[in-house]
Amino acid sequence: MKKNSLLSKLISAPHIVWAAIFIVVPLVMVVYYAFTDRNGDFTVENIKAMGYYTYVNVFLRSLWYGIIVTVICLVIAYPFAYVISNLAPKTQGTMVMLIMLPMWMSLLLRTYSIMALISDTGIINSFLEAVGIGRIKMINTPFAVILGMVYDFLPFMILPVYSAMTKMDVSLIETAYDLGANKRNVFLKVIIPLSRSGIVSGATMVFVPSVSTFFISQRLGGSKTALIGEIIESLFVKNNNPHLGSAISLVLMVLILICMFVMNRFGDEEEGAVMI
Protein backbone atom coordinates (compact mmCIF):
# COMPACT_ATOMS: atom_id res chain seq x y z
CA MET A 1 0.00 0.00 0.00
CA LYS A 2 2.79 2.36 0.96
CA LYS A 3 4.72 1.38 -2.11
CA ASN A 4 1.71 2.17 -4.19
CA SER A 5 1.22 5.61 -2.81
CA LEU A 6 4.91 6.40 -3.29
CA LEU A 7 4.72 5.17 -6.86
CA SER A 8 1.61 7.17 -7.58
CA LYS A 9 3.26 10.23 -6.06
CA LEU A 10 6.24 9.77 -8.32
CA ILE A 11 4.07 9.34 -11.37
CA SER A 12 1.93 12.37 -10.61
CA ALA A 13 4.89 14.54 -9.59
CA PRO A 14 5.65 15.96 -13.06
CA HIS A 15 2.02 16.86 -13.52
CA ILE A 16 1.85 18.60 -10.14
CA VAL A 17 5.02 20.55 -10.87
CA TRP A 18 3.70 21.50 -14.29
CA ALA A 19 0.36 22.61 -12.89
CA ALA A 20 2.09 24.61 -10.16
CA ILE A 21 4.39 26.46 -12.54
CA PHE A 22 1.97 27.13 -15.37
CA ILE A 23 -1.42 27.39 -13.68
CA VAL A 24 -1.11 28.25 -10.00
CA VAL A 25 1.83 30.68 -10.18
CA PRO A 26 0.37 32.77 -13.04
CA LEU A 27 -2.95 32.87 -11.20
CA VAL A 28 -1.30 34.10 -8.05
CA MET A 29 0.59 36.70 -10.09
CA VAL A 30 -2.62 37.90 -11.72
CA VAL A 31 -4.21 38.33 -8.30
CA TYR A 32 -1.06 40.07 -6.97
CA TYR A 33 -0.86 42.51 -9.86
CA ALA A 34 -4.56 43.21 -9.78
CA PHE A 35 -4.36 44.46 -6.18
CA THR A 36 -1.10 46.38 -6.34
CA ASP A 37 0.08 49.60 -7.97
CA ARG A 38 3.36 50.36 -9.74
CA ASN A 39 5.14 50.65 -6.40
CA GLY A 40 3.92 47.27 -5.24
CA ASP A 41 1.54 48.75 -2.63
CA PHE A 42 -1.88 47.28 -2.02
CA THR A 43 -4.70 49.07 -3.84
CA VAL A 44 -8.23 48.49 -5.12
CA GLU A 45 -7.94 51.33 -7.64
CA ASN A 46 -7.40 48.87 -10.51
CA ILE A 47 -10.68 47.16 -9.78
CA LYS A 48 -12.45 50.48 -9.32
CA ALA A 49 -11.05 51.72 -12.65
CA MET A 50 -13.26 49.37 -14.47
CA GLY A 51 -16.30 51.39 -13.50
CA TYR A 52 -14.90 54.62 -14.95
CA TYR A 53 -13.66 53.74 -18.34
CA THR A 54 -15.44 52.35 -21.31
CA TYR A 55 -14.52 48.97 -19.95
CA VAL A 56 -18.06 48.25 -18.86
CA ASN A 57 -19.23 48.56 -22.44
CA VAL A 58 -16.45 46.34 -23.68
CA PHE A 59 -17.23 43.78 -21.02
CA LEU A 60 -20.88 43.72 -21.96
CA ARG A 61 -20.03 43.50 -25.65
CA SER A 62 -17.69 40.58 -25.03
CA LEU A 63 -20.28 38.69 -23.03
CA TRP A 64 -22.96 39.52 -25.59
CA TYR A 65 -20.81 38.27 -28.48
CA GLY A 66 -19.97 35.17 -26.48
CA ILE A 67 -23.65 34.42 -25.99
CA ILE A 68 -24.48 35.06 -29.65
CA VAL A 69 -21.64 32.85 -30.85
CA THR A 70 -22.62 30.07 -28.44
CA VAL A 71 -26.24 30.18 -29.56
CA ILE A 72 -25.33 30.22 -33.26
CA CYS A 73 -22.91 27.34 -32.77
CA LEU A 74 -25.57 25.36 -30.92
CA VAL A 75 -28.17 26.02 -33.61
CA ILE A 76 -25.79 24.86 -36.33
CA ALA A 77 -24.12 22.06 -34.39
CA TYR A 78 -27.15 20.36 -32.89
CA PRO A 79 -28.93 19.25 -36.07
CA PHE A 80 -25.55 18.57 -37.63
CA ALA A 81 -24.51 16.27 -34.78
CA TYR A 82 -27.93 14.60 -34.85
CA VAL A 83 -27.61 13.83 -38.55
CA ILE A 84 -24.06 12.50 -38.18
CA SER A 85 -25.01 10.27 -35.26
CA ASN A 86 -27.63 8.61 -37.43
CA LEU A 87 -25.24 7.82 -40.29
CA ALA A 88 -23.57 4.47 -40.86
CA PRO A 89 -20.65 4.02 -38.40
CA LYS A 90 -18.05 4.23 -41.16
CA THR A 91 -19.43 7.48 -42.54
CA GLN A 92 -19.60 8.85 -39.01
CA GLY A 93 -15.85 8.39 -38.64
CA THR A 94 -15.20 10.24 -41.88
CA MET A 95 -17.50 13.09 -40.89
CA VAL A 96 -15.89 13.48 -37.48
CA MET A 97 -12.49 13.62 -39.15
CA LEU A 98 -13.70 16.31 -41.54
CA ILE A 99 -14.92 18.36 -38.58
CA MET A 100 -11.57 18.01 -36.84
CA LEU A 101 -9.56 18.76 -39.97
CA PRO A 102 -9.62 22.59 -39.66
CA MET A 103 -8.47 22.24 -36.05
CA TRP A 104 -5.21 20.78 -37.26
CA MET A 105 -4.38 24.22 -38.65
CA SER A 106 -3.41 27.14 -36.53
CA LEU A 107 -6.09 29.54 -35.38
CA LEU A 108 -4.07 32.36 -36.94
CA LEU A 109 -4.11 30.76 -40.35
CA ARG A 110 -7.84 30.12 -40.15
CA THR A 111 -8.50 33.72 -39.17
CA TYR A 112 -6.30 35.06 -41.98
CA SER A 113 -8.14 32.87 -44.46
CA ILE A 114 -11.42 34.39 -43.30
CA MET A 115 -9.86 37.81 -43.84
CA ALA A 116 -8.85 36.82 -47.35
CA LEU A 117 -12.47 35.84 -47.98
CA ILE A 118 -14.32 38.83 -46.60
CA SER A 119 -11.95 41.81 -46.82
CA ASP A 120 -12.94 44.76 -48.99
CA THR A 121 -10.84 43.49 -51.87
CA GLY A 122 -11.20 39.85 -50.86
CA ILE A 123 -12.43 36.84 -52.80
CA ILE A 124 -16.13 37.34 -52.10
CA ASN A 125 -16.13 41.05 -52.87
CA SER A 126 -14.11 40.56 -56.06
CA PHE A 127 -16.67 38.03 -57.16
CA LEU A 128 -19.61 40.26 -56.25
CA GLU A 129 -18.05 43.13 -58.15
CA ALA A 130 -17.39 40.95 -61.17
CA VAL A 131 -21.03 39.87 -61.38
CA GLY A 132 -22.16 43.48 -60.97
CA ILE A 133 -23.62 43.43 -57.47
CA GLY A 134 -20.88 45.58 -56.03
CA ARG A 135 -18.87 45.28 -52.88
CA ILE A 136 -20.40 44.67 -49.48
CA LYS A 137 -18.74 45.89 -46.33
CA MET A 138 -17.98 42.82 -44.28
CA ILE A 139 -14.64 43.14 -42.56
CA ASN A 140 -14.40 45.38 -39.50
CA THR A 141 -18.05 44.74 -38.63
CA PRO A 142 -19.56 42.75 -35.75
CA PHE A 143 -20.68 40.27 -38.40
CA ALA A 144 -17.07 39.52 -39.31
CA VAL A 145 -16.07 38.95 -35.68
CA ILE A 146 -18.98 36.63 -35.01
CA LEU A 147 -18.42 34.78 -38.29
CA GLY A 148 -14.79 34.23 -37.36
CA MET A 149 -15.59 33.00 -33.89
CA VAL A 150 -18.36 30.67 -35.06
CA TYR A 151 -16.06 29.26 -37.72
CA ASP A 152 -13.22 28.73 -35.28
CA PHE A 153 -15.20 27.34 -32.36
CA LEU A 154 -17.94 25.33 -34.08
CA PRO A 155 -16.10 21.97 -33.77
CA PHE A 156 -15.97 22.44 -30.00
CA MET A 157 -19.77 22.41 -29.99
CA ILE A 158 -20.32 19.65 -32.53
CA LEU A 159 -18.03 17.07 -30.95
CA PRO A 160 -19.45 16.95 -27.39
CA VAL A 161 -23.04 17.06 -28.66
CA TYR A 162 -22.29 14.33 -31.18
CA SER A 163 -20.64 12.21 -28.52
CA ALA A 164 -23.65 12.59 -26.21
CA MET A 165 -25.93 11.53 -29.05
CA THR A 166 -23.97 8.41 -29.96
CA LYS A 167 -24.13 7.32 -26.33
CA MET A 168 -27.91 7.50 -26.39
CA ASP A 169 -29.67 4.14 -26.20
CA VAL A 170 -31.80 3.59 -29.32
CA SER A 171 -34.32 1.60 -27.34
CA LEU A 172 -35.13 4.76 -25.32
CA ILE A 173 -36.20 6.49 -28.52
CA GLU A 174 -38.20 3.44 -29.57
CA THR A 175 -39.81 3.32 -26.13
CA ALA A 176 -40.88 6.94 -26.47
CA TYR A 177 -42.53 6.20 -29.82
CA ASP A 178 -44.06 3.11 -28.30
CA LEU A 179 -45.59 5.14 -25.46
CA GLY A 180 -47.28 7.44 -27.93
CA ALA A 181 -44.77 10.20 -28.66
CA ASN A 182 -44.68 11.63 -32.16
CA LYS A 183 -41.39 12.72 -33.74
CA ARG A 184 -41.55 16.19 -32.22
CA ASN A 185 -42.18 14.87 -28.72
CA VAL A 186 -39.47 12.26 -28.99
CA PHE A 187 -37.07 15.05 -29.88
CA LEU A 188 -38.21 17.43 -27.15
CA LYS A 189 -38.76 14.95 -24.34
CA VAL A 190 -36.08 12.37 -24.93
CA ILE A 191 -33.36 13.35 -27.37
CA ILE A 192 -32.77 16.90 -26.10
CA PRO A 193 -32.81 16.04 -22.38
CA LEU A 194 -30.51 13.09 -22.95
CA SER A 195 -28.01 15.16 -24.92
CA ARG A 196 -28.04 17.98 -22.37
CA SER A 197 -24.64 17.06 -20.94
CA GLY A 198 -23.19 17.43 -24.43
CA ILE A 199 -24.90 20.79 -24.89
CA VAL A 200 -23.57 22.13 -21.59
CA SER A 201 -19.99 21.09 -22.22
CA GLY A 202 -20.16 22.29 -25.83
CA ALA A 203 -21.52 25.64 -24.70
CA THR A 204 -18.72 25.95 -22.15
CA MET A 205 -16.06 25.13 -24.68
CA VAL A 206 -17.41 27.73 -27.12
CA PHE A 207 -18.41 30.46 -24.69
CA VAL A 208 -15.15 30.69 -22.72
CA PRO A 209 -12.79 31.21 -25.68
CA SER A 210 -15.35 33.47 -27.41
CA VAL A 211 -15.47 35.85 -24.47
CA SER A 212 -11.72 36.02 -24.01
CA THR A 213 -10.44 35.93 -27.58
CA PHE A 214 -8.45 38.94 -28.80
CA PHE A 215 -6.91 37.77 -32.02
CA ILE A 216 -10.10 37.15 -33.98
CA SER A 217 -11.69 40.46 -33.06
CA GLN A 218 -8.46 42.31 -33.67
CA ARG A 219 -8.06 40.97 -37.18
CA LEU A 220 -11.68 40.92 -38.24
CA GLY A 221 -13.34 43.56 -36.10
CA GLY A 222 -11.41 46.80 -36.08
CA SER A 223 -11.59 49.34 -33.28
CA LYS A 224 -15.38 49.62 -33.00
CA THR A 225 -15.81 46.03 -31.97
CA ALA A 226 -12.93 45.86 -29.51
CA LEU A 227 -13.42 42.99 -27.09
CA ILE A 228 -12.13 42.63 -23.57
CA GLY A 229 -9.33 40.31 -24.69
CA GLU A 230 -7.94 43.04 -26.90
CA ILE A 231 -8.01 45.56 -24.06
CA ILE A 232 -6.13 43.17 -21.79
CA GLU A 233 -3.58 42.47 -24.50
CA SER A 234 -2.94 46.16 -25.23
CA LEU A 235 -2.69 46.99 -21.50
CA PHE A 236 0.01 44.38 -21.11
CA VAL A 237 1.86 44.85 -24.39
CA LYS A 238 1.38 48.49 -25.47
CA ASN A 239 0.49 50.47 -22.33
CA ASN A 240 2.77 48.52 -20.04
CA ASN A 241 0.12 48.45 -17.32
CA PRO A 242 -0.03 44.84 -16.11
CA HIS A 243 -1.84 45.97 -12.94
CA LEU A 244 -4.98 47.13 -14.73
CA GLY A 245 -4.64 44.26 -17.21
CA SER A 246 -4.55 41.75 -14.39
CA ALA A 247 -7.52 43.38 -12.69
CA ILE A 248 -9.57 43.10 -15.87
CA SER A 249 -8.46 39.49 -16.35
CA LEU A 250 -9.53 38.70 -12.81
CA VAL A 251 -12.94 40.25 -13.27
CA LEU A 252 -13.32 38.43 -16.58
CA MET A 253 -12.49 35.16 -14.91
CA VAL A 254 -15.07 35.77 -12.21
CA LEU A 255 -17.68 36.73 -14.80
CA ILE A 256 -17.02 33.58 -16.83
CA LEU A 257 -17.26 31.48 -13.68
CA ILE A 258 -20.61 33.06 -12.88
CA CYS A 259 -21.82 32.42 -16.43
CA MET A 260 -20.74 28.78 -16.23
CA PHE A 261 -22.46 28.40 -12.90
CA VAL A 262 -25.69 29.83 -14.31
CA MET A 263 -25.43 27.61 -17.37
CA ASN A 264 -25.00 24.48 -15.26
CA ARG A 265 -27.80 25.56 -12.98
CA PHE A 266 -29.99 26.06 -16.01
CA GLY A 267 -29.30 22.45 -16.97
CA ASP A 268 -30.19 21.20 -13.52
CA GLU A 269 -33.27 23.29 -13.26
CA GLU A 270 -34.58 21.95 -16.53
CA GLU A 271 -34.40 18.51 -15.02
CA GLY A 272 -36.17 19.72 -11.91
CA ALA A 273 -38.90 21.37 -13.92
CA VAL A 274 -39.65 18.17 -15.80
CA MET A 275 -39.77 16.26 -12.55
CA ILE A 276 -42.46 18.33 -10.90
Binding site: T175, Y177, P193
Partner: peptide, 29 residues
Protein backbone atom coordinates in the same frame (compact mmCIF):
# COMPACT_ATOMS: atom_id res chain seq x y z
CA UNK B 1 -46.80 4.27 -36.95
CA UNK B 2 -45.84 2.79 -33.54
CA UNK B 3 -47.03 5.77 -31.50
CA UNK B 4 -50.58 5.41 -32.80
CA UNK B 5 -50.91 1.69 -32.17
CA UNK B 6 -52.79 0.41 -29.13
CA UNK B 7 -49.92 -1.85 -28.16
CA UNK B 8 -47.03 -1.21 -25.80
CA UNK B 9 -43.69 -2.93 -25.58
CA UNK B 10 -41.48 -4.00 -22.69
CA UNK B 11 -37.94 -4.11 -23.95
CA UNK B 12 -35.27 -6.56 -22.92
CA UNK B 13 -33.13 -3.92 -21.24
CA UNK B 14 -36.00 -2.00 -19.59
CA UNK B 15 -35.22 1.24 -21.49
CA UNK B 16 -36.20 3.52 -18.62
CA UNK B 17 -35.62 7.23 -19.22
CA UNK B 18 -32.58 8.10 -17.11
CA UNK B 19 -33.47 11.80 -16.97
CA UNK B 20 -36.81 11.09 -15.30
CA UNK B 21 -37.62 9.60 -11.92
CA UNK B 22 -39.84 6.56 -11.42
CA UNK B 23 -43.04 8.61 -11.23
CA UNK B 24 -42.28 10.54 -14.41
CA UNK B 25 -41.27 7.41 -16.27
CA UNK B 26 -44.64 5.85 -15.54
CA UNK B 27 -46.39 9.14 -16.33
CA UNK B 28 -44.60 9.56 -19.68
CA UNK B 29 -47.37 8.17 -21.87
Amino acid sequence: PPHKRQVNTIFQRYALFPHLNVYENVAFG
